[in-house]
């Protein structure tokens, strides 16, 4: 086996994992699988692309690469603003769509359908604005550095891995150590009791959208940096995201990232041993396997 599989798998897996964290939080706290979550990834990437172009145009030198990476501080700034914009987008979709169903106490499956419709609209809107031609943050080419053990990675890839690790630790600490996280766990177990405990449930829901969208944007920027930016980039990630969230156990942040890494490694293995064209089937195979063997997931509590 080519050890490079490990690096490829970890990189693909960290993007899936970051996206899956948002998905799993929405799933456990708002209690529906959000088919429009992939769109947050794509919109996040496009926000960052437009902003970084804008910043580059206004401030010369913002696009100049910070060695050894391929991108300049303009993209870093653009990503931070894009995270905010993606969060606003998620809040807006919630305000015009999901919140209304919540107020009506609609059954979950109606909300799932609505998220399905929203994903179509949001994705096609991206295609309308940016066309389906792929976009890139940077045209710089990077040389992969040897890491030992026959593995190589570009500085950008290592940066993505490090950033993922940082974000995961941040979210995990937020959830386990802070009052906000405690309130989120409470709403996830029982929203109506949370209100009686004094938790402002609407505020918790807003926090979940902001957090999920910001992480999705980060995943989108990474994917755009390492691969490319396309309107379908989020939709194509959706099945791996679901597989990772269910594999990790819905509601579990460590589960989502571990699930993401497993799916990513599985995809890398499939590319090496079966053929790159079958890569997209790995997530489905993992999904079916976990539903057969352990539907509550690796870190899930009994439903």
């Amino acid at each position: 086996m080519n050890p490079q599989v490990v690096i490829d798998g970890l990189i693909a897996g960290s993007m899936i994992g970051l996206g899956a964290i948002g998905l799993t939080l929405v799933y456990s706290i708002l209690r529906f699988p959000n088919f429009a979550h992939g769109e947050m990834i794509a919109w996040g990437a496009y926000f960052a692309m437009s902003l970084s172009a804008l910043i580059g145009a206004v401030i010369g030198g913002a696009g100049a690469p910070i060695a050894p990476f391929s991108f300049g501080w303009g993209l870093v700034l653009a990503t931070i603003i894009a995270m905010g914009l993606t969060a606003l987008l998620a809040l807006a979709v919630d305000a015009v769509l999901f919140r209304i169903f919540r107020k009506r106490q609609s059954v979950m499956i109606i909300i799932v359908m609505a998220s399905f419709g929203a994903s179509m609209a949001l994705r096609s809107l991206l295609e309308f604005i940016y066309t389906s031609r792929p976009g890139y943050f940077t045209r710089e080419l990077q040389i992969a550095m040897p890491l030992g053990g026959g593995m190589r990675a570009t500085p950008d890839q290592l940066f993505a891995l490090g950033l993922t690790a940082l974000l995961v630790v941040f979210v995990h600490l937020l959830l386990t150590r802070t009052p906000t996280g405690r309130a989120m766990r409470a709403v996830s177990e029982n929203p109506s009791l949370s209100g009686l405990f004094g938790v402002d449930v609407d505020k918790v829901i807003r926090t979940v959208w902001i957090l999920g969208a910001a992480l999705a944007c980060a995943a989108g920027v990474m994917s755009g940096l390492l691969v490319q930016i396309r309107p379908y980039m989020g939709f194509d990630l959706l099945l791996p995201l679901f597989a990772a969230a269910i594999l990790g156990g819905i509601g579990s942040v460590p589960g989502a990232i571990v699930g993401g890494l497993i799916v990513g490694l599985g995809e890398a293995l499939a590319v090496q041993f079966v053929g790159a064209q079958w890569r997209a089937g790995v997530a489905f195979a993992i999904l079916v396997a976990i539903l057969l063997v352990r539907p509550t997931g690796l870190f899930g509590r009994q439903a």
Binding site: P179, R182, R185, A186, E189, N190, F197, G198, V199, R301
Partner: peptide, 13 residues
């Protein structure tokens, strides 16, 4: 909240 510790229940409250 059964998935929170006793102390966490009180902290939440």
């Amino acid at each position: 909240f059964t998935t929170l510790s006793i102390h966490e229940n009180l902290q939440l409250a």
